[in-house]
Design a protein around this nucleic acid. Structure first.
Lengths: 340, 340
DNA sequence: TTGAAAGCGCTACCAC
DNA sequence: GTGGTAGCGCTTTCAA
């Protein structure tokens, strides 16, 4: 059913029907109501591509999906939830991890192709090329995370620095002095923020920073295991770990057990948890103490902010920093040395 | 830059330029090459929405994303990879798990909205409402998995039955007689196929089927733990587990350890592995024997088949059943009773 | 408050 | 092998 035909059946002009459906003020309440009801009854829906052509809007938000990011689904699911009631789709593009050149090209294509009205930038660096590019191209974009580029941009981030500072401080309170940090990929802002939080906590107690206790890499089980295992084989070994993700924590748990040590007694562990339905900190053995923030909620909110940005809210006004909960469970306990 | 303007700069008609860019045969090779080069140089790209309006194609494939599906990202990533070079997007819609009514409505909206050219159906049931609906609405769709509905439809599936039959047989070969199965959500085709493979393996050896050894549910760490733990506390307890996913296997490992038993010695475990970059069977401790099939590859292939379907290949011709590898690692060993 | 009609940018039919 | 041009289905001026 097309507009023309639908309008004819109602005895109205296409103009009026279009206006009624789009909520323009000049249509009488009576007409609007009638049009809305008949549209449902007769199953009329505007052709989305015609609407997009004529309005010049793409009706989609672009997101670029790296390879190894299990977190991504949760984030996107949150976005999709918020956009469900809007006529806005999510357009997904894949990119090989750490192929910066390909990634820049992809963002460039995305921005100039006219397929999206806005783009989401993930895991930014302090001086992120993508942000400069998108700003130059003039396409609206939002950053999930933060960056120090001096072009104005909208962002939403969690307080990574505070989260890791508190996690580390808590371990220090428990008497731990050799605390290892398994952080994210090197050079990313959130990684730097976490490094910073870690060092601040140490500094506050006058504990010297030891770079050998810090590792960077992707959030995989394997990296968690390798680094934890190698550190635990040294002497003196760390008595606590701050892990960057649930997957990393799985690896750390495994490394601890492989040396016949016990998490929560011999070795304390705190991890950052993005809240996954299929793997929960409470269910681990022992249950895992976490700094926790919902990726799904962040996705939903970022979708919301994107709509605001597209509606004209200035990017320079859109900045949200979310606090992170610290939830103590069984994986943290007094330092073994302190107990001896 | 618009077609008209671009054509004028080349001294050609819009028609010829359009044909050259779309690969029509009647354009001379020389002209085609020149147009392609100039398009890159001048940065001309057809307006995607105009193309979609005039061709009547939406330029997108719809996928519905349930909540708890960590596998989904891997699958979609594979799809996105294959579609990268095409002018086809992936449209993501979320739906609450197990809300069948909402799901049917969502598929209905998706199919009638004109936003997608085809729809992917996941985790079908033998008699799946969604398949009947999409067939009735006349929109092209592909099923990831199988169904017994008698409307013709394209599908790609892995050999779940064979995979679990072989996994179970292997455990029987090792002397195990009480083998538990932690399967997927009840009522889904792949769950039924796995149940069937399990029972067939038992039957071949004349081992009676014991329904108490089989559980159904989502692929979460928690369900793996709960069921394994509860069975292991009984007497006689199972000596082996077949787990539906890596997350389930994590729960099983945990349950085994929580009772001071050892995976691979006291209790054998085989799981199905969809191949994730962040959690690998090889890295588990002990390394996990798996039946293995790449979800990413399935996503890429299904995207490919979607393009074929849209190009006119009959749905009734598109059926692919993928074999599943069985990879033995350390988590499987002779039954404890047999060793005694 | 409603309607007529001019495009949005492109493809594809038809003519040459 | 190339070009003119009529729409694709809708929104949005402008006029009534």
């Amino acid at each position: 059913m097309k507009l023309k035909e639908f309008a004819k059946q109602l005895g109205l002009s296409p103009t009026t029907v279009s206006r009624a459906l789009s909520g323009y003020p000049e249509v009488s309440e009576k007409t609007r109501k009638r049009v809305a009801e008949e549209a449902v009854r007769l199953g009329y829906r505007p052709n989305i591509n015609a609407v997009r052509l004529v309005t010049g809007r793409a009706g989609a938000i672009g997101v670029v999906m790296g390879r190894n990011e299990f977190q991504f689904c949760e984030f996107m699911s949150g976005m999709a939830e918020r956009l469900d009631s809007e006529d806005i789709d999510i357009l997904v593009s894949p990119v090989a991890v750490q192929d910066t050149k390909a990634e820049i090209q992809l963002y460039s294509r995305l921005a100039t192709s006219g397929r999206v009205d806005a783009v989401i930038v993930h895991s930014p660096k302090p001086n992120d090329e993508r942000i400069l590019l998108l700003h130059k191209l003039g396409i609206p974009f939002l950053v999930h995370g933060r960056s120090e580029t001096n072009v104005p941009h909208a962002w939403l981030d969690i307080d990574n620095e505070g989260a890791i500072r508190r996690a580390t401080s808590h371990l220090l309170d428990l008497g731990h002095r050799r605390i290892a940090l398994i952080n994210g990929r090197d050079g990313l802002t959130f990684t730097l923020h976490r490094d910073k939080g870690y060092r601040e906590a140490l500094e506050q107690r006058g504990i010297p920073f030891d770079p050998r206790l810090v590792a960077h890499g992707q959030f995989t089980d394997e990296i968690g295991f390798r680094f934890a295992r190698s550190l635990l084989e040294q002497s003196p070994r760390p008595t606590a770990f701050v892990a960057g993700s649930m997957m990393t924590a799985l690896g750390v748990y495994r490394a601890v057990r492989s040396l016949d040590l016990v998490v929560g007694r011999d070795i304390s562990v705190i991890a950052h948890d993005d809240v996954f339905p299929y793997l929960t900190a409470d269910n681990m053995a022992p249950s895992l103490s976490t700094s926790r923030s919902s990726l799904r909620a962040a996705g939903a909110r970022l979708a919301d902010l994107t709509l605001q940005l597209l509606a004209g809210r200035p990017a320079s006004e859109i900045h949200e920093l979310w606090p992170v909960e610290l939830i103590l469970r069984e994986s943290t306990g007094p330092a073994a040395e302190a107990a001896q």
